[in-house]
Design a protein around this nucleic acid. Structure first.
Lengths: 176, 176
DNA sequence: GGTATTTTGTAGTGGCTGATACAAAAATAA
DNA sequence: TTATTTTTGTATCAGCCACTACAAAATACC
């Protein structure tokens, strides 16, 4: 399962073939289908698992900061650090999966999970700035998407972290 | 050519098959290869043409504003408007192409073109803030990437435009 | 009008995709 | 030890991919 997640995260759903999966897992196609049902089904499981416990604990980061601007800033900073950590540049699996349409069902699953993340941000912002909750949640998602895609595109650690800081300044200014 | 650009922009390189191309162009495979060489060669031509004269005149927008913060803000705003204009949500062809690895040669072409755009921003910023030129150029690219991906992901006009405005506030704060 | 040249249409190339039919082997149960 | 069930391996399925060989039709040239 970890093996499959690594493959999907690194190459994307479409670029991972059954041949790669079965070889990496050390099993044969029939065993694979007996165990997971299909390539798409496995990917859904991997996605859900990734969303459930990835390395970016949103709720924890947000709840650790009283002021909304600080919480969102910390979230963006943590994401930048996380995306830049892997030298290979793979970004956030959820964001990237939601972007590639691929099979419609998989796209829906990824977008639903992303929408749940957005909702977490939205609810957090709404506690203090209900009028701006939606717009700031969208801005946060857009920035996270940009950070993820850019990390995947090879942008380095300093640029990502600094960009997160500039975005945080924008949030601070917006809430002032 | 316009037809091919529309297809590639809407579906992405990999998702456009020869069958779609030949049918849309109203020609047969042999004619296609006689005219363009290959699918990859056509895509490179389309990419270059898109980069040369897309609907986002960067130099023009930037040079119209004396203060760097205003210029970058206008650029982000124009991009948000542009990406939100098409109801289908297709974002920036260059950004999206640079993200999908696909064939390595195509990826290099897309990234080179994107790097040229970044250079335009960098040079513009450097005229007034040489020390922050690189970081602000990266932030601009990251934000444009996020706007493009989010537009492709279905985010609406208000959210994109507002996000661009928040990002612009971040730039203003950064330069203060 | 007759000939050479280019364009087009048909059909098919090998190779890869995700997914299986079927049998051999291993593990479990009696 | 024998019988039953489960797992695994081999070999392959049909379908799509980008791409092309070859011949028929249309055009240009004299």
């Amino acid at each position: 399962m970890d093996t499959a997640q690594t493959l999907f995260h690194r190459h994307g759903y479409d670029a991972v073939s059954m041949a790669m999966l079965t070889e990496a897992l050390g099993i044969n196609p029939p065993s694979f289908y007996a165990a997971f049902g299909s390539k798409a089904a496995l990917f859904e499981q991997v996605l859900s698992r990734y969303a459930a416990d990835n390395d970016l604990p949103m709720e924890q980061i947000l709840s650790a900061h009283a002021r909304v601007a600080d919480g969102l800033g910390a979230l963006l900073g943590a994401a930048a650090e996380l995306y830049a950590r892997d030298a290979e540049g793979i970004g956030c699996m959820l964001m990237e999966a939601a972007r590639d349409a691929g099979e419609s069902r998989l796209c829906e699953t990824a977008r639903r999970l992303r929408a749940e993340s957005r909702q977490v941000v939205r609810d957090y912002v709404a506690t203090q700035h209900p009028d701006q909750a939606d717009m700031l949640a969208d801005f946060t998602i857009i920035t996270l998407t940009g950070l993820s895609s850019s990390a995947r595109g090879g942008m380095g650690h300093p640029a990502l972290v600094h960009a997160a800081r500039i975005a945080a300044k924008g949030i601070t200014a917006e809430l002032k």
